[in-house]
Design a protein around this nucleic acid. Structure first.
Lengths: 179, 179
DNA sequence: GTCTATAGTGGGATAGAC
DNA sequence: GTCTATCCCACTATAGAC
C-alpha cells in the first residue's frame, strides 16, 4: 500500500518511526523500537505495514514531503539569489535531520512506495531556478556531495565549508552553455 | 594495529575481504563469509584482527591506496584537461568498484586505522590541479555527489549523465576568484 | 594459525487468541 | 488493533584445545 493511502493509525506509526529515526539514527529504527515508542508490541505493527521496508517507505514519503515544502518556500521567497537560497535550504534541511537525509538520499529511492509525483515535486524548484536539466543535475550533485561529505566528517575540522559552498554556488550560478 | 603494519596472513585476509565486498556488497561482508572464502572458520580471523571494524579498516586502506594510485596516474598523464582527467578517473573508479566506493566515501573514515598520510595523498592530485582549497572541496563535492546519485539510481533512467558531468566540470574549471 | 564449541545479542516475522 | 508466544535467522565475539 502506497504511503499516501495509509490509514490514520498507520500514519501515526510512520510519524513516530520518523521521529525515532531522526532522534536516534537508522540503526535504532527497528520494528521493536518503533512499537515501544508507541506503547505497543512489535507484531502489532504488521497489521498496518506488511514489512519493515513498507514502513520505511512511509517514512521516506513523510521526509520528502517535508523537504519539498521547505524547498518550495525557499524558491518563493527571495528576489535575487534564488540558487543561493535553494542551496541554503537544502543544506539546512540536511543539517537539521541528518539521519533522515541519509535515509532518503544515500540509497535507492523506494519509488514503488511513494506517492506519484512526489519525487518530481521535490526536484522542481531547482529545475525552475537553473533552467536546464544538466545544470539542475550538476547543482544537485554539488549540494548532495557537500552535505554527504560534511555529514560524514570527511572535510578537515578546520575546513572553511562556507567558502566551499560559496565557491561551488558561484561557479554554478553562471548560465550554462547551450548544448 | 594500523593496516600498514599487518602481517602477511592478515594482509591476505584483508585482500579477500576486499574482493568479497566488491563482488557481493557490504551486507555480504561478514566475518563468517570472509572466513569461508579463505577456507577457514570465522573465529580464526580474530587471531589477525581484533574486530570486524579493524578488518574493515584494512579494507579501506587497500581501497584508498588503489584509488590514490589511479588518481595520481590520471593527474600525470594529460597535458591539457587535467580536471577532466581527474573527474574521469574518479568516476571510473567508483563505477568499477561501487561497493568499495561507498564503504570508503559514504561514511566516516576510520582514520585511526589508516596509515598516516594516506588520506592526504589521495586528495593531493585534485588540490594540485585546481590550486585552491575551496575549489578542491567544491569539485570533490560535485564528483562525489554525481557518483553517489548515480550509484543509487537517483537520476532518471534517461538522464544524460555525461552532460551533467560535463556541465559541472566546465563550471568548475574556471579559475576561482581569490577571496 | 586453526579448530570446536558456545555464548550473547538483536532483529524480522508469523500464528492464533482476544 | 493489540496481545502473547515463538520461530528463525544472522552476526560478533570469546574460551580453550591442538
Amino acid at each position: 500500500m502506497p504511503a499516501h493511502e495509509l490509514g490514520p493509525r498507520a500514519r501515526e506509526i510512520a510519524i513516530e518511526a520518523r521521529a525515532l529515526l531522526n532522534e536516534r539514527g537508522p540503526e535504532a529504527l527497528t520494528m521493536r523500537a518503533v512499537a515501544e515508542r508507541l506503547g505497543i508490541q512489535a507484531p502489532s505493527l504488521y497489521k498496518h505495514f506488511a514489512s519493515k521496508e513498507a514502513l520505511e517507505g512511509a517514512v521516506v514519503t513523510l521526509a520528502l514531503e517535508d523537504f519539498a515544502e521547505r524547498f518550495e518556500a525557499a524558491a518563493a521567497a527571495p528576489k535575487g539569489d534564488r540558487l543561493g537560497a535553494l542551496a541554503h535550504a537544502y543544506r539546512a534541511y540536511a543539517h537539521a535531520m541528518p539521519h533522515e537525509y541519509q535515509l532518503v538520499n544515500d540509497r535507492p529511492l523506494p519509488r514503488d512506495l511513494l506517492p506519484e509525483g512526489l519525487e518530481a515535486r521535490a526536484a522542481a524548484p531547482l529545475l525552475r531556478a537553473v533552467g536546464t536539466l544538466e545544470r539542475a543535475r550538476s547543482a544537485w550533485a554539488f549540494a548532495h556531495g557537500m552535505v554527504s561529505l560534511e555529514l560524514n566528517g570527511r572535510f578537515p575540522p578546520d575546513a572553511d565549508l562556507e567558502a566551499a559552498w560559496e565557491d561551488g554556488i558561484r561557479a554554478l550560478r553562471r548560465t550554462p552553455r547551450r548544448t
